[in-house]
């Protein structure tokens, strides 16, 4: 279990997250949603140990998350951090040298499923192809936690569809958890177990989708808008 207790984070004097507490249990897909600039990316970077909280603790199975314990967490960043001159093939080989838990075989299988051309250089790839490569490289790691920052942003519906299917196909809900931020809540909702709504650096709600639909009689987008409106008044 991944646990955040009273996390605050500031860049110099600008507070980004305030008093954030929540838990992520194994075997779930959790969507982190909220407006731009509300702290989603910062939250994900704290979870992966890339940033350190100004206050509070983040623990994974009771152990404090640092860059090294974050070895159990695979991160898909929202920007391209790849070497442009690598081919996809070389990138997979590079990942193999960087992460002990990276399976070249699995990345290749995911790559095939997502129809990635492995011989092409990254700089020659379209945005959609890059999105696929990032997904394959991330899922190539065999880890309990996948943290994905906007894995579907700016991609056309066909690419989104195939990434979503890849995500379902190549993760194991008995042993793994996926935390992903998204602005495409309507399209992503069918694969989510829980939604975490951030606003102004705080958690406004953390709810199970079945509860949203069963008890509030709303879909995730309506639920989010209603909460948002409530907070604005």
């Amino acid at each position: 279990m991944l646990q955040l207790s009273n996390i605050s984070f500031s860049y110099i004097n600008r507070p980004v997250l305030q008093n954030v507490s929540c838990e992520f249990t194994l075997g779930k897909i959790i969507g982190v949603v909220g407006e731009n600039g509300t702290g989603k990316s910062t939250l994900l970077k704290l979870i992966t140990g890339i940033l350190r909280p100004t206050k509070g603790d983040i623990t994974l199975d009771g152990k404090r998350v640092t860059r090294t314990t974050a070895a159990n967490i695979a991160f898909l960043p929202d920007i391209d951090l790849f070497y442009e001159f690598y081919t996809v093939e070389q990138l997979f080989r590079f990942y193999e040298t960087q992460f002990a838990d990276f399976s070249y075989e699995k990345a290749s299988i995911v790559g095939e499923f997502l129809q990635i051309e492995r011989g092409r250089k990254l700089r020659q790839l379209s945005k959609g192809q890059r999105g696929r490569v990032k997904m394959a490289a991330t899922l190539g790691r065999e880890v309990p936690f996948y943290v994905m920052d906007e894995p579907f942003a700016g991609l056309d519906p066909m690419v989104k569809d195939s990434l979503i299917k890849g995500l379902i196909r190549f993760t194991d809900m008995e042993t793994q958890t996926i935390i992903l931020s998204t602005h495409e809540l309507y399209e992503v909702e069918p694969i989510l177990d829980e939604v975490l709504l951030l606003q102004g650096g705080r958690i406004v709600a953390h709810e199970q989708l079945e509860v949203i639909r069963d008890e509030h009689n709303q879909d995730a987008v309506q639920w989010m808008k209603a909460l948002h409106k409530e907070r604005m008044n």
């Binding site: 299917k165 379902i168 809900m173």
Partner: peptide
């Protein structure tokens, strides 16, 4: 079935 219908395995 999850992959076919684009929903979560838990669902």
């Amino acid at each position: 079935y999850a992959v076919q219908s684009g929903v979560n395995v838990n669902t």
